[in-house]
């Protein structure tokens, strides 16, 4: 935890330095320096937390569903070659597609509220998770399954004692990649038909030319990203002690 705090302070202070330096050399009110921005953040703290809470909730729900769906689906594709032959090509077709382009379709089918935004982020993350988990399953040495056959030929003991623990590093790595993409998708999704969320806050501040508020929203997104990364690091430290 000490290391994480040190890395946060180091990262944040270098970010502040670059930001301050850019604000000085550009000398443009659309890029205010860090200090008036922090002052504005303090004034807006209640509103900011409300918007950040809404964004965090959408990311958390989408990540949870993506893991709940992606983990068994990835295991299925990795473990059963017929399932992979059937769905693998579809996965590769969907993987490079920019899922954000589907936002209008999600809105038509799932409404303008939270559901369509969560589903959009879910669609972005889940394919990433499925591919990583499937590849993770393929990396488990075949000989390890024979160890499990020593004790039971049923699938559940293998899933519990072999597949799940072997996949934790792949899962965490895929979630790390997914968090960055999901924050970007969230920013996009929160620009439409919503009054809560950091994406909305940033764009509405921009239209009001309240640049301090706009940068406050950007800073909040960075903090959310850092928070989620820290949680993932902690999970990795706890569950992958052997590494």
């Amino acid at each position: 935890m000490k290391n994480q705090l040190r890395s946060f302070l180091l990262g944040f202070s270098s970010f502040l330095l670059v930001w301050w330096w850019l604000s000085v050399i550009t000398d443009n009110r659309s890029l205010p320096s860090p200090f008036p921005t922090f002052k504005r953040m303090w004034e807006l703290k209640d509103v900011l937390f409300l918007h950040a809470g809404a964004s965090l909730m959408r990311i958390f729900v989408a990540l949870t569903i993506a893991v709940l769906v992606g983990l068994p689906a990835g295991i299925l594709l990795g473990k059963y070659s017929k399932a992979n032959q059937l769905f693998g090509p579809l996965l590769y077709f969907l993987y490079p597609l920019p899922k954000v382009a589907f936002l209008p379709i999600f809105m038509i089918f799932f409404g303008l509220g939270n559901l369509s935004k969560i589903l959009l982020i879910f669609s972005v993350i889940s394919i990433q998770v499925i591919v990583s988990i499937r590849d993770g399953v393929n990396e488990i040495p075949e000989s390890y399954y024979q160890v499990m056959d020593n004790y039971s030929t049923k699938i559940w003991p293998s899933v519990r004692f072999l597949i799940f623990p072997a996949l934790i590093p792949s899962l965490i790595a895929s979630l790390r990649v997914s968090v960055g993409i999901s924050l970007a998708s969230l920013f996009f999704a929160e620009n439409y038909n919503t009054t809560y969320g950091l994406g909305y806050l940033i764009l509405s501040a921009w239209s009001k030319m309240d640049y301090e508020q706009m940068l406050s929203g950007i800073l909040m997104i960075a903090w959310i990203g850092f928070f989620v990364f820290t949680v993932l690091d902690e999970l990795e430290r706890r569950f992958c002690r052997y590494r």
């Binding site: 000989s143 160890v147 020593n150 004692f161 934790i168």
Partner: peptide, 14 residues
């Protein structure tokens, strides 16, 4: 009947 393999196959996470 239990088997101990030549390459042992101890799981690294256990």
């Amino acid at each position: 009947v239990e088997m101990v393999f030549q390459d042992l196959r101890l799981f690294p996470w256990q």
